[in-house]
Structure formats: structure tokens, C-alpha cells
């Protein structure tokens, strides 16, 4: 079937099987490789994208379900080669180790900054509950997002 998806403000159209998963459309049709496949069952969040501003796990959706919606992937968070506040903080604080989780934490972190009233340590810790990091024990990542939120508030 013909599917057209709007990803990072750009339309991608292709003839794909109805069973095509959203994550495969993003990676293989749109060629955006920053969204990863970690667990295939919604356990890990490596495939996280924003769908009409809401974080979703793109391995648990069919591409066809996303038609007519606005998708933002990790690549769409930075503008003109400039990282957004969460990404800058994760990078400066060297919070990530292996980096395979980069999409998950920056999508979730960005959503937190834009949607949460409170962005203290406990709130961020609980909001990140659907994204797995096997390297860091989470604390460096939580701190980086809390810090990014603080800096945003100052501005």
C-alpha cells in the first residue's frame, strides 16, 4: 500500500506492505538511522519518536497508523546542526556511554522539558521509566535532564 508519512517536517512516500512497522519505515524508507531497534517489544525505548508531540515507541506501531500525523525523530530535535537543550546537556555531562539509547533519552527528555511543570530529580526519574540504559545506572542521565530543565527555566 502507498503510505505517506510526515517526518521532521518532510513528507516521505513509498509503496510498502501494510505490515510495515513505523520504526522500519523511519529507518529503511526515510533512511533516518538515529531511531534504533533495541528490544522489539516496547521494553527499551530505543525506537522512541514524537507523534503529534507525544512520545511513542515506533516498534509497536504500524507505519500505516501514523499517516496524517507529525512525526519527529531524534534527528529532528536539533536545528541546523545545533543540539537542543537536552541533547546539549546529555553531551556536556557525558551522561551517555554506549550511545544506543540516544534517541530514547533525548526524545523523552525533550518531552519532559516541554510538558512537565515539575522537573525535579524524582519526577524525571519516574518519567524515564520506559527507556532502558544498561551502562550508566541512570543517575548521570537523570541529572543531565534535570540540569537542562533548570537552564531552560533560567532563560
Amino acid at each position: 500500500m502507498r503510505i505517506r508519512l510526515n517526518i521532521n517536517g518532510k513528507d516521505y512516500e513509498s509503496d510498502v506492505e501494510p505490515r510495515t512497522l513505523l520504526v522500519d519505515f523511519i529507518r529503511d524508507v526515510a533512511g533516518l538511522k538515529g531511531t534504533h531497534i533495541g528490544c522489539e517489544t516496547g521494553s527499551c525505548g530505543a525506537c522512541m519518536v514524537l507523534l503529534d508531540g507525544k512520545p511513542v515507541k515506533s516498534c509497536l506501531m504500524l507505519a500505516a497508523q501514523a499517516e496524517g500525523k507529525k512525526i519527529v525523530t531524534v534527528e529532528g530535535l536539533s536545528e541546523g546542526g545545533k543540539l537542543n537543550a537536552v541533547q546539549k546537556s546529555l553531551s556536556q555531562k557525558k551522561a551517555l556511554q554506549c550511545g544506543f539509547c540516544a534517541a530514547g533519552f533525548s526524545i523523552m527528555g525533550t518531552w519532559i522539558l516541554e510538558n512537565e511543570q515539575d522537573t525535579d530529580y524524582e519526577r524525571v526519574k519516574s518519567d524515564l521509566a520506559g527507556v532502558v540504559c544498561r551502562c550508566s545506572g541512570y543517575e548521570p542521565i537523570i541529572n543531565a535532564i534535570v540540569e537542562a530543565a533548570k537552564n531552560e527555566r533560567k532563560d
Binding site: 516496547g42 507525544k54 512520545p55 515507541k57 509497536l60 520506559g130
Partner: peptide, 9 residues
Amino acid sequence: VGDIAIRSM
């Protein structure tokens, strides 16, 4: 239910 992403979906 689940996490924020699962509740969004």
C-alpha cells in the same frame, strides 16, 4: 499503565 509512551499510544 506502562510508561509515558505506552500511555500516549
